[in-house]
Amino acid sequence: MTVRIAYIEEPPFYWTGDDGRPTGADIELAEVVLRGIGVTSIAYHRTSFAEFLPGVREERWDMNVPIFVTAERAQQVSFSAPVWTIGDGFLVRADNPKVLTSYEAVAARGDVRLGLIPAQVQVDAAKAAGVSDDQIMLFNDQPEAVAALMAGRIDAFAATALGNRATAATNPALDAVDVDAGKPGAELIGAFSFSTSNPDLREAVNAGLRGYLGTPDHRARMAKYGFTRTEIDGVVGRAPDA
């Protein structure tokens, strides 16, 4: 049995390694769970964030790596049991020269430009806090946004706090700042997603997740990528939200 899974470039969750193969915390999780339910072959498809939901909905592949669960997305795809809970954060230049610690702080300064990726939950969080359209610059992916930050074209890039910490740890010119996005709890939950016409795979993955999440092996694998008890304990034993 072969399962096709899509991913994007967003360390430490998923990215393409130096050897050209997908790697990352959620890649390892997918491989352990899929092998555990009898999958013999995994085919990875690198794509863009904007193509995640259309691609799996149209069955161009079978599942997506974990993304945030939202009510709007749950109308388009089926989500697995949650696999992590993570808040928002900013990537800023070292020492955070404009003291950007929240979306409200961005909105309060007309000279600040915020980098975002279209359709990610951070776009809604920024706009809800009053960040104006002319303060927002959109990018295709994390590497493109980080390059713009390094070049001074934006003052901050909003993504997951964990992902930003991982990026800053490898680049002394950048700092990571955790922010309070003010999002409802469900929007902080990440899960695999599937076509609504493929309930068998979703349920098989859920069965695998129920037996694996929170185990010593799971915690050890995730710890390599910066995950702590905070990101894991909040979802262990939780049922799917959609």
Rank of each mutant, 00 (worst) to 15 (best):
L34S: 00
L34T: 00
R35I: 03
R35P: 01
I37A: 06
G38A: 11
G38C: 11
V39I: 12
V39D: 04
V39T: 09
V39P: 01
T40I: 02
S41E: 09
S41R: 12
I42W: 06
I42C: 04
Y44G: 04
T47Y: 06
T47S: 09
T47L: 07
S48C: 00
S48N: 01
S48M: 04
F49I: 04
F49K: 05
A50P: 00
A50T: 03
A50F: 01
E51P: 00
E51Q: 06
E51C: 00
E51Y: 01
E51F: 02
F52W: 13
F52Q: 14
F52R: 14
F52V: 09
F52H: 14
F52D: 13
F52P: 02
L53K: 06
L53V: 15
P54R: 02
P54C: 07
G55P: 02
G55T: 06
V56A: 10
V56L: 09
V56I: 12
V56F: 11
R57M: 10
R57S: 15
R57A: 15
E58H: 08
E58P: 02
R60L: 04
R60I: 00
W61E: 03
D62E: 03
D62S: 05
M63D: 01
M63H: 05
M63N: 02
M63T: 09
N64P: 07
N64I: 09
V65K: 01
V65I: 15
P66S: 03
P66F: 01
I67H: 06
I67Y: 05
I67S: 05
I67V: 11
F68E: 12
F68C: 08
F68Y: 15
F68V: 10
F68R: 14
V69E: 06
V69S: 07
T70G: 12
T70H: 09
A71Q: 14
A71Y: 10
E72F: 11
R73Q: 12
R73Y: 14
A74H: 07
Q75M: 13
Q75V: 06
Q76Y: 07
Q76N: 11
V77H: 09
V77Q: 12
V77P: 09
V77M: 13
S78W: 14
S80N: 12
S80R: 04
S80M: 10
A81M: 13
A81Q: 13
A81R: 15
A81T: 14
P82D: 08
P82Q: 05
P82N: 06
V83R: 04
V83D: 12
T85C: 13
I86H: 06
I86K: 07
I86T: 13
G87K: 03
G87Q: 05
G87V: 02
D88V: 04
D88N: 15
D88E: 15
G89I: 07
G89H: 06
F90L: 12
